[in-house]
Amino acid sequence: MSKPLIALTEIILPIAVALYFFGWIYTYYWLEYFGGDVSAIDLNIYFIIVYSFSVLSFFLEILWNYIFNIISGFSVLMSIFLIVIIYLLIVRYFRDHASTFISRLASPVVYAMVFVVIITGGYFISREAGIAKAHEIRRNPQQLIYFVLKKNGRPDDPIFDGPFQNWNNGYQLYKITATKDFYIVLWQSSPGEVGWVFEIPRSSVSAAQILMRNDPAVRRDQ
């Protein structure tokens, strides 16, 4: 394997591992909010990687809001500027005066510290992004879903012949997500109020209809 390819692999592999970690934490917390277990749901690795970009988007949104809020705070910006200058002076001092041993030790220690900071910070950001996703679904569910259940394959639970059937027939169920084995759907009396979450086996479903809400943006583009 050529050196450029090895170098590229050494860059891409840690990034891919970090993205998978962030995406898994994000998925875990927003499913856990609805009582789901990410370990029991067969989500492909590429779905997890895609979800990690929701974490990055969430982080950038927070960062932008923070910058926007302090952009007029001259004293805060000056403080940041001074911290950066002091940091550069310290780095330069140690670069010029540190012993060979300290210089060799510094790189692994710095890399380890950066790794710990990224993983720890990424965990908390991913968790908050996942919880925010769950809250957004409760506040503003988008996809109404209606099921045609198989007569001989419906789940063996009385609730599927009672409240669920009424909510299903009344178009009051909202799709949370779907895997290759289950539909996960939500019923709630009103946004944020008491609700039920159902895992509907695909094997029990003859057909599923999803009602798309009005989208003014689409009409404007016409």
Score class of each variant (00 low, 15 high):
residue 1 M to Y: 09
residue 2 S to N: 13
residue 3 K to S: 06
residue 3 K to F: 15
residue 4 P to Q: 07
residue 4 P to F: 12
residue 5 L to D: 02
residue 6 I to L: 15
residue 7 A to L: 15
residue 8 L to R: 01
residue 11 I to T: 09
residue 13 L to W: 07
residue 15 I to M: 13
residue 15 I to Y: 07
residue 16 A to Q: 08
residue 17 V to P: 05
residue 19 L to H: 08
residue 19 L to C: 10
residue 20 Y to G: 05
residue 21 F to W: 04
residue 21 F to C: 04
residue 34 F to K: 02
residue 35 G to S: 11
residue 36 G to V: 05
residue 39 S to K: 11
residue 39 S to N: 10
residue 39 S to I: 13
residue 40 A to K: 13
residue 41 I to R: 03
residue 42 D to H: 13
residue 47 F to N: 03
residue 50 V to I: 12
residue 53 F to M: 03
residue 53 F to D: 02
residue 54 S to G: 09
residue 56 L to Y: 08
residue 58 F to A: 04
residue 59 F to N: 01
residue 59 F to C: 03
residue 60 L to V: 07
residue 60 L to Y: 09
residue 61 E to Y: 10
residue 62 I to L: 15
residue 64 W to A: 11
residue 65 N to F: 15
residue 66 Y to D: 06
residue 67 I to Q: 02
residue 68 F to W: 06
residue 70 I to A: 08
residue 70 I to E: 12
residue 70 I to Q: 12
residue 71 I to F: 09
residue 72 S to C: 07
residue 73 G to H: 08
residue 74 F to R: 02
residue 74 F to A: 12
residue 78 M to S: 05
residue 81 F to I: 10
residue 82 L to R: 08
residue 83 I to R: 08
residue 83 I to W: 08
residue 87 Y to F: 14
residue 90 I to A: 00
residue 91 V to Y: 07
residue 91 V to N: 10
residue 93 Y to R: 00
residue 100 T to P: 00
residue 100 T to D: 14
residue 103 S to R: 13
residue 111 Y to F: 11
residue 111 Y to V: 12
residue 112 A to W: 10
residue 112 A to V: 13
residue 113 M to C: 09
residue 117 V to L: 14
residue 117 V to M: 10
residue 118 I to R: 03
residue 119 I to Y: 07
residue 121 G to Q: 07
residue 121 G to S: 12
residue 121 G to W: 11
residue 123 Y to D: 01
residue 123 Y to Q: 04
residue 123 Y to E: 04
residue 125 I to A: 11
residue 127 R to Y: 14
residue 127 R to M: 14
residue 128 E to Q: 14
residue 129 A to F: 08
residue 130 G to D: 05
residue 130 G to V: 04
residue 131 I to F: 07
residue 133 K to F: 06
residue 134 A to P: 04
residue 135 H to K: 11
residue 137 I to D: 03
residue 137 I to Q: 05
residue 144 L to G: 01
residue 146 Y to P: 00
residue 147 F to Q: 01
residue 150 K to E: 13
residue 151 K to I: 10
residue 152 N to S: 05
residue 157 D to H: 10
residue 158 P to K: 00
residue 160 F to W: 07
residue 161 D to A: 11
residue 161 D to W: 02
residue 161 D to I: 05
residue 163 P to M: 15
residue 163 P to N: 13
residue 165 Q to S: 14
residue 165 Q to P: 00
residue 167 W to S: 02
residue 167 W to Q: 07
residue 170 G to P: 01
residue 170 G to V: 07
residue 171 Y to H: 10
residue 172 Q to R: 12
residue 173 L to G: 04
residue 175 K to R: 11
residue 175 K to E: 15
residue 176 I to V: 08
residue 180 K to A: 15
residue 183 Y to K: 00
residue 184 I to T: 08
residue 184 I to H: 04
residue 184 I to N: 01
residue 188 Q to C: 08
residue 190 S to F: 09
residue 191 P to W: 00
residue 192 G to T: 06
residue 193 E to F: 11
residue 195 G to P: 03
residue 196 W to R: 06
residue 196 W to I: 12
residue 198 F to M: 02
residue 199 E to A: 15
residue 201 P to K: 00
residue 202 R to I: 09
residue 203 S to Q: 09
residue 205 V to Y: 01
residue 206 S to N: 07
residue 208 A to G: 01
residue 208 A to F: 01
residue 208 A to W: 05
residue 211 L to Y: 15
residue 211 L to N: 07
residue 211 L to H: 12
residue 212 M to L: 11
residue 216 P to R: 01
residue 217 A to T: 09
residue 217 A to C: 00
residue 222 Q to T: 09
